Simulated scan of single mutants.
Amino acid sequence: MKFLSVVILSISLVACSSTEVHLYTRYLSDTEIEKISSKLDESNFKVITNTLSFPETINQSTLLYSPFIKGDKTLDILINSLSDLGWAIPNVEALVSGNHWYSKDSVGLFILPEGVKQKDKIANQDLANDYESRNCDTLVNLRLNKDNTYQLTFLNKTNERKDHLKGSWKIRSYPYIELTSFNERWWFYFEIEQKVESDKVSKVNIIELKPVDHYPFFPNCSFVNGVRI
């Protein structure tokens, strides 16, 4: 299977008889996380949450399990517990997906609500990240937060105006993203582009936000975030 994630999750056996469930919460609400964690705890699983990205090979809810998992019925109990909450797990695989490895008595649980992640689109949760300016003389960082707020930080100049530095962001109509200052005096529009680039080390998955207009605060700047493959 092609490795599509740079994060290697190594899981060791702890002094506990409960099977570890590593719950990937990136696309879940706080309420959903709490319900799932409580249900699995009741079923004698040790739940460990994280917000790591999903491997690109996963496009539906998936359970990845170690071949060393204890108990013949462990997977059945886990799947049935999730089913009681209305979560179906259509894909069950052994050992590895992307660079996510599971060893000893542990499983990885990737829950993906229907319609959240599509191969030709980027989910809001995956857009939330730090971006650096590209193709311009202005050094500026753009932070897209998970609560749909943004922050611009200029590194090599001071702007007299500061009311454009913070605001909210949303997908207006994919692949276009809109940034609006909190005082609603400034609007910035970018086109979202996904691509793979290479450097001397490896290939890199790139998300680039390309301006659709000329903005005087950061003329011609694109903003990029990259993850090594």
Score class of each variant (00 low, 15 high):
M1E: 07
L4Q: 13
L4H: 12
L4A: 13
S10D: 14
S10G: 08
I11F: 05
V14F: 13
C16V: 10
S17H: 11
S17C: 06
E20M: 11
H22M: 04
L23D: 00
L23Y: 05
L23G: 01
T25Q: 06
T25Y: 04
R26L: 15
L28F: 02
D30A: 12
D30Y: 03
T31N: 09
I33G: 07
I33M: 08
I36W: 05
K39L: 04
L40N: 04
L40I: 02
D41G: 15
F45Y: 11
F45G: 04
F45A: 01
I48F: 06
N50R: 03
S53H: 12
F54P: 03
P55Q: 06
P55G: 08
I58T: 10
Q60L: 09
S61E: 08
T62I: 07
L64V: 15
S66P: 09
F68C: 10
T74F: 07
D76A: 12
L78G: 00
I79V: 15
I79E: 13
N80R: 12
N80P: 04
S83E: 09
A88T: 14
P90H: 03
N99K: 08
N99R: 02
H100A: 13
Y102P: 07
K104Q: 09
D105L: 00
S106C: 10
V107C: 06
G108Y: 00
L109A: 07
E114S: 09
E114T: 09
G115V: 01
V116Q: 11
V116C: 09
Q118D: 15
Q118P: 00
N124I: 13
N124G: 14
Q125R: 10
A128S: 11
N129E: 12
S133P: 08
S133M: 02
R134D: 09
R134V: 14
T138N: 08
N141H: 06
L142M: 05
R143F: 06
R143D: 08
L144P: 01
N145Y: 05
D147V: 01
D147K: 04
L152W: 14
T153D: 12
L155K: 02
N159I: 14
N159L: 14
R161F: 11
K162V: 15
D163V: 07
L165P: 01
K166V: 12
K166S: 07
S168Q: 11
S168N: 13
K170T: 12
K170G: 11
S173K: 15
I177M: 02
F182R: 10
N183F: 11
E184T: 10
W186A: 08
F188I: 02
F190W: 02
E191R: 07
I192L: 02
E193A: 07
Q194P: 01
E197A: 11
E197R: 07
S198T: 09
D199C: 00
D199E: 01
K200Q: 13
K200P: 06
V201H: 08
V201T: 13
V201F: 12
L209E: 04
K210V: 03
K210W: 02
P211I: 10
D213A: 06
H214G: 08
Y215C: 01
N220Q: 13
N220L: 09
V224T: 14
R228L: 07
I229G: 07
